[in-house]
């Protein structure tokens, strides 16, 4: 029983970076932009997030506030990177897959280089600590599972209904879905397709940056070149797995994170088994699940990956 509770309570915070990043990617893809550069945006977010408390935050009166400034900076720069990506793929209509790989390398490389320049070697930060919810966290089992986490965990799970509401209940969400599925129809009714795509990219970039900063400030509490470890790509896969729906994406993020927690727990048991295979487990799981999940053509953004040009007749 404790074994299971341990895995669950470990898995929930593990899922947060994936959840935030894939909700961002969901907005990108719903608007028709395939952003493979998520990984790079997360890396930049991770570095910038910890840079703020590590530099100006040290020795300050209220060091805690600098963590949140770090999160804010990471989101802001993430949004800028999203807009930059938009310039490349929306304005100049570069092939999105290739541009995404470029963004990934740019982000990871720049973050690593800046890290070596400004910080040098491995340094940990105090980061943001768990904030048990008074009272509720004392409930046996449930308290440990749900009410004894980092504040950002609660925020991330709050993002799920918010994202759902924005996507399905607001005019902006309606526009995003329209330009990602049938941009010509949206255009014919007076919606500025490229403007909506830029907005979605800014939102997606901000969330990717925030997800990266969560890793460096809340989960690992340090920065290294490999901190993202493919989570940006997993986030892209989760969007497909979740059929572009926030709740299903959350389920995917939890599944992956629980697999990761499980493999860590098994390693901890000290069973004689090559740990490399265990580390592989969550990634292999994603591939298997994607291969067998239902391919729905009716719900997804059918214009995904296609630049829009009103005067090119198709």
């Amino acid at each position: 029983m404790t074994f299971i509770v341990n895995i669950l309570s470990l898995g929930i915070p593990f899922s947060v970076a994936l959840l935030i990043a894939s909700l961002g990617e969901m907005f990108n893809q719903r608007s028709g932009i395939f952003n493979l550069g998520c990984e790079g945006m997360m890396a930049m977010g991770a570095f910038l997030g910890m840079l703020v408390p590590y530099t100006i935050g040290q020795g300050a009166d209220v060091p805690g506030i600098y963590n949140y400034l770090g999160l804010l900076l990471a989101s802001g720069v993430g949004a800028l990177l999203g807009l930059f990506f938009g310039l490349v793929v929306v304005t100049f209509r570069a092939p999105q897959g290739i541009a995404g790989i470029g963004m990934q390398m740019f982000g990871v490389g720049t973050a690593g280089t800046l890290f070596r320049h400004f910080i040098g070697g491995t340094q940990s930060v105090p980061g943001i600590n768990t904030a048990p919810i008074p009272g509720l966290s004392k409930i046996p089992i449930l308290g440990t599972l749900f009410f004894n986490h980092n504040p950002m965990v609660y925020v991330a799970f709050l993002f799920v209904p918010i994202a759902w509401y924005i996507l399905f209940k607001t005019p902006w969400g309606l526009r995003v879905r329209a330009v990602g599925t049938h941009p010509r129809a949206a255009d014919s009714i007076g919606i500025q397709v490229n403007k909506v795509r830029f907005q979605a990219l800014a939102v997606g970039g901000a969330l990717a940056g925030l997800a990266g900063a969560y890793l460096s400030l809340c989960q690992v509490k340090m920065f290294s070149d490999e901190i993202i470890a493919g989570r940006g790509f997993i986030a892209v896969a989760l969007v497909y797995f979740g059929h572009w729906h926030p709740v299903k994406i959350m389920a995917g993020a939890l599944l992956f994170a629980l697999a990761q927690a499980l493999q860590l727990a098994i390693q901890g048991l000290g069973i004689d088994f090559p740990y490399e295979f265990l580390v592989m487990l969550p990634y292999a799981l994603v591939i298997v699940v994607l291969a067998f999940s239902r391919k729905s053509q009716k719900t997804g953004p059918s214009a995904l990956g296609k630049p829009f040009n009103r005067e090119i007749r198709t």
Partner: peptide, 18 residues
């Protein structure tokens, strides 16, 4: 001629779009 309707949205949403 080619209908300008978003297939994965409802009639209501398609009209709300404009």
């Amino acid at each position: 001629q080619q209908y300008m309707l978003v297939p994965n949205m409802t009639v209501l949403e398609n009209i709300a779009l404009g």
